[in-house]
């Protein structure tokens, strides 16, 4: 099984971080992984995105043009990536910020009010984790526990006081999916 995932949002929403987290978790599970960022002036202010591949097989191309799942955290990213999803693909939509309706009909859409949930958990900064929790729960590309374990490896030590909040946000995102979001 090969998961080709795109994560997209504004610069500053922590898109690259959740991409790294998922990649790291996949690696620790012994899967083949790759992480490819969009880079350049885009990263500051505009949309930022990264492509993560998690697979049981050797990864051919790290470039993802036909994602099997997508996290979309802002409006511009929706416009950019929602059409690219493969039929039957999964779209995790941050419904706190993206007020649109899917007109394709052939994909699964999970509307997650990530910013609102994150605020309840403690800070809107962890909205990215809420989305990642939802994606991991819905795709089973890695175990949620692997992602939680990866937190302290990927997040810089000086922010380790925030680990519990990040963990809670991941779990909240996952539980929303289990509850049928």
């Amino acid at each position: 099984m090969t998961h080709e995932i795109i994560m997209a949002g504004f610069g500053g929403q922590g898109i690259m971080l959740i991409g790294t987290l998922l990649t790291y978790a996949g690696m620790k599970e012994g899967k083949k992984v790759s992480w490819l960022p969009s880079y350049g002036p885009e990263m500051r202010g505009g949309t930022a995105n990264c492509a993560v591949v998690v697979s049981d097989e050797e990864i051919a191309s790290p470039i993802v043009t036909e994602p099997t799942s997508c996290i979309v955290m802002n409006g511009p990213s929706f416009a950019k990536f929602h059409k690219a999803l493969v039929p039957g693909g999964l779209l995790v939509l941050n419904s706190s910020l993206v007020k649109v309706d899917d007109r394709r009909g052939d994909i699964r859409v999970l509307k997650i009010p990530a910013n609102d949930v994150a605020r309840e958990v403690g800070s809107e900064k962890v909205a990215n984790m809420v989305c990642l929790g939802a994606l991991v729960e819905a795709t089973s590309c890695v175990a949620l526990d692997s992602v939680i374990k990866a937190l302290k490896e990927v997040i810089h030590e000086r922010h380790h006081n925030l680990l519990p909040m990040n963990e809670e946000a991941l779990k909240k995102g996952a539980s929303l999916v289990r509850a049928g979001a």
Binding site: K32, V33, S34, W35, L36, Y39, I59, P62
Partner: peptide, 10 residues
Amino acid sequence: DGMLGQMMEP
């Protein structure tokens, strides 16, 4: 190339 430099792999 820029891609090889910017991407992450194990």
